[in-house]
């Protein structure tokens, strides 16, 4: 793979990561899943120093996540939107240029709306979660599609907050 193709692959990965942040911020779940491969697998994990174990908080393949997102409007939920602030730290493109892995650091803010006393809290921002996206991609035609996403949380205090993917 030439240098130009390598650079193009890195830019494609960054574009997909950042585009995904915007789509998720806007709760456009199906548009996000359009950026994912048919075999996509998503999980939210954390290590607990309290119980000294790796933990799985949520997981599913593309169909399961899509199904969950379709059902969630039937549930009561905190309507405070979440906003992601992410920086792609590293992108490692495989020698053949057809796959890549990326590490993205993120913080997620909760823009308070109705979760507590909206008269007082609406409009305020709370830090909701801190972690990293550990992503893998398929690269083709100068674009990157998600194969997997692991949302690796540092945050283990999760108050009432969300039903949705992070």
């Amino acid at each position: 793979m030439g240098k130009a193709n390598h650079r193009a692959a890195i830019e494609a990965v960054k574009d997909t990561v950042y585009r995904t942040c915007l789509l998720m911020d806007d709760e456009r779940w199906s548009d996000w899943l359009e950026l994912c491969d048919e075999g996509f697998y998503y999980k939210i994990t954390a290590y607990s120093p309290e119980i000294r174990r790796d933990m799985l908080y949520l997981d599913g393949d593309r169909d399961q996540i899509a199904q969950m997102c379709e059902l969630l409007p039937k549930h009561n939920t905190d309507r405070s939107p979440l906003k992601r602030h992410a920086v792609v730290y590293t992108v490692d493109v495989e020698d053949n240029g057809k796959a890549a892995q990326a590490v993205t650091s993120f913080v997620i803010y909760q823009n308070m709306l109705d979760g507590v006393n909206s008269h007082i809290d609406a409009g305020e921002n709370h830090l909701f979660a801190v972690g990293r996206y550990l992503d893998s991609f398929e690269i083709a035609d100068d674009s990157a599609r998600f194969l997997t996403r692991e949302v690796r949380l540092e945050t283990r205090r999760l108050d009432k907050g969300t039903h949705w993917p992070l």
Partner: peptide
């Protein structure tokens, strides 16, 4: 773990609703 999470995990269907209620 999956059975547990779908209802009672931090993003589970029920736990968030219970926490919203007592909030």
């Amino acid at each position: 773990i999956r059975h547990h999470n779908t209802i009672w995990g931090p993003m589970g269907r029920n736990l968030h609703e219970d926490l919203l209620s007592i909030t």
